[in-house]
Amino acid sequence: MKNLMEIRWHGRGGQGAKTAALLFGEAALATGKYIQAFPEYGPERMGAPVQSFNRLSDEPITLHSQVISPEVVVVLDPTLIETVEVTAGLSSGGVIIVNTREAPREMRKKLGLAPGKQKVWTVDASTISREHIGREIPNTPMMGALVKATGILSLESLLSDTKKKLEKKFRHKPEIIRGNIESIKEAYQKVKGE
């Protein structure tokens, strides 16, 4: 299918990989794109490696098979790199974004990616989320990093749609909405790539 972007999110059960895919899908829909968002349903438990996926396109998406070779991979937990092949199927011009304190160059070495075609971006989303939200929920800041690294949506449209969605869920907790919005902004500014 032409014009199709596929994203794979890696996280651990409880880190919000599924929620990130859903929120990001809805934000893309708000800009007029066709979207899909779906998790991989296995024996999901708190802390176990989980995956979720997005498809985005300017045309209706009819594909209902698994995402095999994503253009973008987002890793919410750096410890996953030891146990999960997070770069599996990453397309040759693809982008991988990792939540880590390490610089993109070091991360590239760890991932075993040759310099050149695929881009590696890193940001310390755990610290950002702890500072703004008060606990380690790296999923929303990683959406900010994703938008910066790919340019697939504007920061403004991501912020306005995410705010709307969070307002529904956290009507009585404005500090959570504010914290998430601030962490998206900060991750957008701080994410670095090479």
Partner: peptide, 12 residues
């Protein structure tokens, strides 16, 4: 609808 593929897949 097909289980999980559609029942739990977010679409437009």
């Amino acid at each position: 609808v097909d289980g999980f593929i559609i029942s739990h897949g977010l679409e437009v």
